[in-house]
Nucleic acid binder design. Structure first.
Lengths: 150, 150
DNA sequence: ATAAAATTTAAAGTTAACTTTAAGTCAAGC
DNA sequence: GCTTGACTTAAAGTTAACTTTAAATTTTAT
């Protein structure tokens, strides 16, 4: 029924010290304590911890996660505020996806660049190539790397 | 023809101190200096800086980026090593994309959760719902949040 | 009953990637 | 020639998110 910090840490694959740190920072207002002061995690606390994990993966700071967890504790009056917060975070993730795709595009271009150089035995082979020789799907990444203005 | 650190910083939208830090850490072996010691960036240096920017976006550390930049300075003998490095970093980005998509899935579920709660005026509405009431594309994220084992 | 293992807190330590500061040199415009 | 703003370096400071340490207490196992 109840779990200790060590057991929950194992389940979530994080260090117990990290959970204690989250608690100290006020991220875990839902965690109960035994008479002797030991944290008692319930199965239902796992969801809160997974939400924290999720928000952390979006790059949200501990302080901002605390704001969200506090809203959760305030009950139904804060539903719209929480919705707005989730939506805002959703947008930052969409932006991150865009950025990560651009990064991958650049790496894909570089992969082709070195693959081509490897076949020729020298990077100098690229001096002989024109933009038309670059696979179409890599051309945009190439242009972004090469542009000299802005 | 040549640009100062401040000009290049503006072009790349980073602080001059960041570029000086990269230089100090050995990331910019290609940058020349004037007789009086002032950094002289060429147009062609922009590409190297953009590669650094790209690798940074993959989460690579300054130290590991230096390894790559050093390989670049060593010329054609290191083409295959550089290719392997790019490929490895490409794989980490693919993994990051997967992670980010899972994070977005969770946020999408939470969005629906609060949207539904907002319409009902209370989060308690979810106690009345069964898994079949959850939109199909959000069900996996829901299950990951709810699962109690592992 | 006792030893070992896990828990508690507060406080200090860690790390990466910069930024800031300070003191000095250089370059451009008037 | 002089001021102003940008450049230089070395060294110290910053920040977030933990981790580690230490000393004390509690729980578990024998």
């Amino acid at each position: 029924m109840f779990y200790t910090v060590g057991e929950i840490a194992k389940k979530l694959n994080v260090a117990p010290s990290a959970l204690r740190y989250y608690d100290k920072e006020g991220l875990l207002p839902f965690v109960e304590r035994s008479d002797s002061g030991i944290r008692l995690f319930k199965d239902s606390d796992m969801e809160g911890l997974r939400v924290i994990e999720c928000l952390k993966k979006t790059g949200m700071s501990i302080k901002d996660i605390k704001v969200f967890m506090d809203l959760c504790q305030l009950g139904d009056a804060t539903i719209n505020e929480r919705l707005a917060l989730i939506d805002k975070q959703r947008e930052t993730v969409l932006e991150q996806q865009k950025q990560l795709q651009e990064t991958l595009d650049t790496l894909n271009y570089k992969h082709w660049y070195y693959e081509t150089a490897a076949k020729a035995g020298t990077c100098a082979v690229h001096d002989l190539l024109t933009e038309a020789d670059i696979p179409e799907d890599l051309r945009t990444a190439y242009q972004k790397l090469k542009k000299t203005d802005e």
